[in-house]
Design a binder for these strands. Structure first.
Lengths: 366, 366
DNA sequence: CCTTGACACTCTACATGGGCGATTGCTAGC
DNA sequence: GCTAGCAATCGCCCATGTAGAGTGTCAAGG
């Protein structure tokens, strides 16, 4: 074994053994020994030879032994190499794809959260892992109607109807009091000028007018449609999680204390959310294995994510959380397809999504 | 031991022993033996005598031995007797009460769900158990402004502003198309006639008019303010749960499978909700111990609930879920006081008039 | 130079069995 | 009616033994 040992990469044969080992471990959940590999690898090698190969793989850090005489299990590095170069992806079964598509479109009439929930549940059901979907931020919002109401203390209530039937409202703190008449004029102006226009367009046009005579009104109107900027949606809530109890079925996570910490992390949301945000950057499926996430709590977990798009805009991220020992060859395609289908479902009808910033309310839709 | 055995109720001395035993078990979590009781009961009885008393208590079904020579632990019936007649409630510490009050009032500016969340978190923090609060249903809603927008396909979007700054909207499926003009007239009528009135009043008045000429309009207007009836709030969401991970800290529940089932029940919501609903009927604190809940999953759990009121209307239920072995003497007052304070916080509105009511979840999402 | 069979070694999991301690039930005696 | 004492019971702990699985290594063979 002189030749390979000098390299950082395992030999062809070692790669094959590693793949079989990882696959076997994912399937059985037990450390894999040389005898087993010798029998199942299809290489016609004796256990002793396999042991040599395994020793090499261990030196390279791809596998490790929990203790003497217990076979080997993949390390995070091993899983990483596996998903990067060894895994043989299993396309989703066609019926599953169709069903998934149906589920996402069925729910489509609901608000964004309902759709995200549906996707999350579907992910969880398909993978038997925890599904997680960030609530989509919509980038297209067409102004339908706007209304202002004066409140006490220099505050104004703005009510926007966008995308046909979606109502948003926000309370504006103003510099001075406005009369009902003033507010009505402002609303009329906006409704006349901008009904049917995209909010971003409204925003730019208003901003262009800012120097003109109607300055103070512009301020009011600008404020009323602000908060639709991309930043919103991150502050509160953020994602939908489902099927987290499924994680308890894995022995690796059957330690009560571990589960507790994991669930607490889910409740905290912070870590998970920044992790999901990280994968907005990348195109396509991204995978965080064990320590790679950088969060101690997730050391035994892998997160598989994919952003989903409307048009060519990324509007959210979805994925699953499970033990490092998950069925990558099935999970990766599922996450990939779900992201694509969710994007497609959101795309097919502009009526549905909510806008960012403001969340769907209790009475509509749901 | 002749006299007491004939009765269903334990003797005075036996009650005392039972109380000490339950208290001790709650504190230590270990089966309590006769020797321990002899030392701590303050009765100056020898272990042997205590044993006789314990035998009586066991015959009556108040305590049981997990196995020979392991001391006794309370049965559900034992706990029941304890909380009904033996427990010495410990009033909440004054600083805790003040802090709790502050927390509930701080959050008041938020929507109903935020308040419920605050109460739930507080309950969880104070008791180290899982806190649960049903989302208050609003019983008072003053109409501020209403607006109708025609949608495609005989649908109408109704936007209501109630209680000063709270926006609600619903989509109405109508029998025929309405013109913008018609809708404007309807809205004007409602705004003129009913601004400042309570929605329930609006409803009754409209209903009274139903036979008149404006019948079809009445139908539209009635529909628009429907859904504010007491039924709302039960369908979706329903309650806020926090601190459920705390339950994992109890040995009784440290079995992963049990915890999993429990968490799944939390997710399902059905059982918990009907259980909470059951306690709406009763005044004051209600306690479901172990099997009493009727749900197998909660066999090892106790639920302590109390309805909370605004005015004299019960608007929701709150409580805690924990192992049967919980510190009843502390938990009961906490639940009681929290219910009272939550009601008080909801009742006194710093923002507007005395009858301001609540704001359901609109702007702040989940 | 690689592969293989053989062998010794290590470690875990499981079962066995004895001793210890806690607690009970019973009975005789106060 | 209470108490002391005693035998019996049972769970828990620990030490020991055993079986099984897997490893590392080495020397022989292709």
């Amino acid at each position: 074994m002189g030749t390979e040992l000098t390299s950082d990469l395992p030999s062809e044969r070692a790669r094959h053994v590693l793949r079989i080992l990882v696959e076997h471990y994912i399937r059985e959940g037990q450390p894999v020994g040389s005898r087993t590999l010798s029998l199942t690898a299809g290489l016609d090698l004796s256990p002793a030879t396999i042991r040599n190969v395994m020793a090499d793989l261990e030196d390279l850090g791809f596998i490790a032994a929990p203790h003497t005489s217990a076979g080997r299990i993949p390390t995070a590095k091993g899983y990483r190499f596996f998903v990067d170069t060894l895994v043989r992806l299993q396309p989703m079964a066609e019926p599953d794809v169709v069903r998934l598509q149906g589920q996402l479109e069925d729910r489509f009439r609901g608000d964004a959260k309902a759709i995200a929930s549906a996707a999350s549940s579907a992910l969880s059901a398909l993978t038997s892992l925890a599904g997680v979907v960030t609530i989509p931020r919509q980038q297209k919002a067409t102004l339908r109607h706007i209304e202002f109401l004066p409140l006490s203390g220099r505050r104004v209530l703005a009510i926007l109807v966008v995308n046909d039937a979606e109502v948003q409202n926000r309370i504006l703190d103003m510099d001075r009091d406005y009369t009902e008449e003033e507010l009505r004029r402002a609303a009329n102006y906006l409704n006349e000028q901008f009904t049917g226009r995209d909010l971003s367009e409204v925003r730019t046009r208003l901003r262009a007018n800012l120097d003109g005579t109607r300055e103070y009104m512009n301020r009011l109107m600008l404020d009323s449609i602000a908060g639709h900027a991309p930043k919103a949606g991150t502050e509160s809530a953020g994602y939908v999680l489902s099927g987290e109890t499924k994680l308890m079925n894995f022995q690796e996570l059957s330690d009560v204390e571990k589960i507790r910490q994991l669930f607490e992390a889910f409740g905290e949301q912070r870590e998970i959310l920044t992790l999901l945000d990280r994968s907005v950057a990348a195109q396509g499926v991204q995978i965080f294995i064990g320590e790679e996430s950088g969060y101690r709590i997730l050391d035994d977990c892998t997160i598989v994510t994919a952003p989903y798009t409307v048009g060519d805009q990324i509007v959210g991220v979805l994925g699953v959380i499970g033990p490092t020992r998950m069925a990558y060859e099935r999970v990766i395609p599922i996450v990939e397809v779900t992201a694509r289908l969710l994007g497609a479902a959101l795309n097919s009808d502009p009526n549905a999504g909510p806008d960012f910033g403001l969340r769907p309310d209790l009475n509509s839709g749901s």
